[in-house]
Simulated scan of single mutants.
Amino acid sequence: MKILLTNDDGIRAPGLEVLEAIAAEFSDDIWICAPDEEQSGMGHALTLTRPVRLRQHDERRFSVTGTPTDSVTMGLRQVMDGPPDLILSGVNRGANLADDITYSGTVSAAIEGALAGIRSIAMSQVIARDGAADADTFDAARRWGAKVLQPLLDTPLPARTLVNVNFPALPSAEVKGIRAVRQGFHDYSRGTVVEGRDPRGFTYYWFGLQAIEHTLDHGTDLEAIDEGYIAVTPLQLDLTHHASLGELGERFA
């Protein structure tokens, strides 16, 4: 099995090393094409207004001066010697749950893979609220990654779908198991913009990343993580709200 790895934290991110270890349990034909620098929050952005440069670090290891979407595109069209059987994105340092997936470069890299007709899976490690990072930050992802991935390799998935996986911020021994759940909902109304001044006296703004209100509906990714489970969520690329089509059709008839 040929596997392409990518992420949005950059080619030197520790989570990418964890992803390599997970992938190595299934294949020795592993390719990497990831952003040269961190691209968190870039979503499904594609670089169109400047050239993208490709750097080779090893025989099958490359970085791109662009977004996660650019990385997948370059990996498929310029780097690999044939299409992969699987694309893995991550392991992201931080959650990609609920509405946050619309901002996520990690998930968007998997979206690009799904658009290309390749089985694609995004993986993220939830971080404890104090934000502390140490050698055990990715313990749950490292120990449970292959257990989650194995069933996903054998499960039939419709075209233009992908899978989003989140590991709870717990030691691997305390993870309760794996749940297949739907996407949850965040309340962003309490988000803030922090204003400051740089050393030259100019005003700048920093988007606040304080805790966001969670709506822990039953059967959601937010609930699963809150209760100590790994959240596995199938996502589709059809964003159409089908229930509204009839009423809108009548309005424009």
Rank of each mutant, 00 (worst) to 15 (best):
P51Q: 12
A180L: 10
L19R: 00
A122C: 06
Y204W: 09
P84R: 04
I22A: 04
F202L: 14
G131F: 10
V163P: 00
V18A: 02
G249E: 12
P158N: 05
F202E: 14
T49G: 09
A180M: 13
L115S: 03
V79H: 00
D70L: 09
L16S: 01
Q125Y: 13
Q39P: 01
R160I: 00
R190S: 09
G177Q: 12
R129A: 15
M74N: 03
A141G: 05
F202M: 13
R119W: 01
H44R: 12
P234F: 05
Y204V: 02
E59Q: 08
R12K: 15
T106H: 01
E20H: 11
T106S: 08
I3M: 12
G113P: 01
I212D: 03
S89K: 00
S124G: 10
L222C: 05
A253V: 05
N166T: 13
G201C: 10
V163L: 06
L88F: 05
G145S: 11
I101K: 00
F252D: 07
R143G: 06
V193N: 13
G228D: 09
S40Q: 14
R93N: 05
E195V: 15
G117R: 10
D29H: 04
E250I: 11
E227V: 02
R77H: 15
M74H: 08
C33L: 01
L245H: 06
E174R: 15
R129C: 10
V165P: 01
G82D: 10
G145N: 07
W206T: 12
S172Y: 12
H214V: 02
I127L: 15
E20T: 01
V175W: 09
L86Q: 07
D70M: 12
I118A: 10
A141Y: 02
K2S: 14
A98I: 06
G117F: 08
R200I: 06
A122P: 01
V79R: 01
F252V: 13
I121D: 00
D81K: 11
G249D: 12
A253T: 09
L170D: 02
M74C: 11
F138C: 11
D130M: 10
K147D: 13
A132F: 14
F62G: 02
H57P: 04
G41R: 07
R190I: 04
A173E: 15
G75E: 06
M1E: 13
L157F: 11
L76E: 01
A253M: 04
T6A: 02
G10L: 00
F62N: 03
R251H: 09
E227S: 09
H186I: 14
V181A: 04
A146Q: 06
V148E: 07
I111C: 09
A159H: 14
G15H: 05
P158F: 03
Q183E: 11
P83I: 01
H214L: 02
K2G: 05
I111T: 08
N92D: 04
Y205A: 14
S124H: 06
S63G: 09
A135W: 10
P14E: 14
R53W: 07
A253I: 04
S104H: 02
L153C: 10
F207R: 13
T161E: 07
D81Y: 02
N164T: 08
P84A: 09
Q236L: 03
L222N: 04
A159N: 14
P151K: 13
R251C: 04
L149Q: 11
